[in-house]
Design a protein around this nucleic acid. Structure first.
Length: 271
DNA sequence: CACGGATCCTGATGGC
DNA sequence: TGCCATCAGGATCCGT
């Protein structure tokens, strides 16, 4: 569910409501991907100063610490007052003076981790090796090209790895490669500079557009107010195998790369 | 170091 | 309340 746009949409829908709130209590459900790393009671009394995002992580700046939240494959966060009792897949509640933040995550690949600061080894382990932010100024086409030159893997898998640029997940990788007219199986180090330039622009474009549209709702994505996104309505290739390419009419193909589905137009996208 | 594969977990879907 | 296989938006760990 959550790639960068969904996480950013979540952040935007959450930040104003929770900023400035005082934490009243924290409640854990079933175990998530990693332990919280602190007694929930230690969060009590802290203030939520701001909500930031790094890659697909939500970062909650607290008065004395940093709370890292990852939505995994199936997570979503809600923020509201007067919530019902936690349901089967609600695994983390943060009760605050301004409402309750609740993480719902059926598959539990998500995570909630406490770190004393961004310099805490716990945070460094999770954030330290992340690539640049695709929508930030640091996403430079020349640097991107140089990074790609070091990889012989298929370009799509390099994008998913997030070591050069973060936030591009399985949907947007296929979409960005379509926009850039690049076959997902093309080896990263075989892409010419002009093609990398196009890819860099395509990544920015597709992610920015998805944020604008409120994210994807392939299955069940919703923001912190429970509203769905609409990006999937305009997917060019994702989950469209067998259907006509919106650009040339050729049937969209699908294949598996590293146990993930990939979609592409064999006519529009060149090796 | 870069790579490919297995792995965590639950639910939806489709074939039989 | 059928059973089984496959697939789903992520990211880490482990062997080579």
């Amino acid at each position: 569910m959550p790639e960068l746009p969904e996480v950013e949409v979540t952040r935007l829908s959450l930040a104003a409501g929770i900023s400035g709130a005082t934490i009243l209590s924290a409640t854990l459900g079933k175990p998530l991907r990693w332990p919280l790393g602190v007694e929930p009671g230690r969060l009590t009394g802290q203030r939520v100063l701001a909500v930031r995002r790094r890659g697909k992580y939500l970062l909650f700046d607290l008065s004395a610490g940093l709370l890292l939240v990852h939505l995994g494959m199936s997570g979503s966060v809600g923020f509201a007052s007067g919530l019902a009792e936690a349901g089967k897949h609600d695994h983390f509640d943060l009760q605050t003076s301004q409402g309750t933040l609740r993480l719902n995550d059926p598959r539990r690949f998500g995570a909630v981790v406490f770190a004393s600061s961004e310099a805490d080894p716990v945070a460094v382990k999770l954030l330290g090796r992340l690539g640049v932010e695709p929508l930030g100024e640091d996403f430079d086409a020349v640097v991107f090209y140089q990074g790609l030159q070091q990889r012989k893997t298929a370009i799509k898998q390099v994008l998913l790895a997030g070591e050069l640029v973060v936030g591009v997940g399985n949907i947007y990788a296929s979409e960005a490669l379509f926009l850039a007219a690049i076959r997902p199986t093309t080896r990263a180090n075989r892409l010419s500079r002009p093609r990398v330039l196009r890819l860099q622009a395509a990544i920015r474009q597709v992610l920015a557009r998805a944020v604008e549209k409120g994210g994807s709702t392939l299955r069940d994505f919703s923001n912190a107010q429970g509203e769905s996104g609409h990006f999937q309505l305009e997917a060019m290739v994702y989950a469209r195998q067998g259907q006509a390419c919106r650009q040339c009419g050729t049937a969209i193909k699908s294949l598996r790369q590293g146990q993930r589905s990939t979609f592409f137009c064999p006519q529009c996208q060149k090796p």
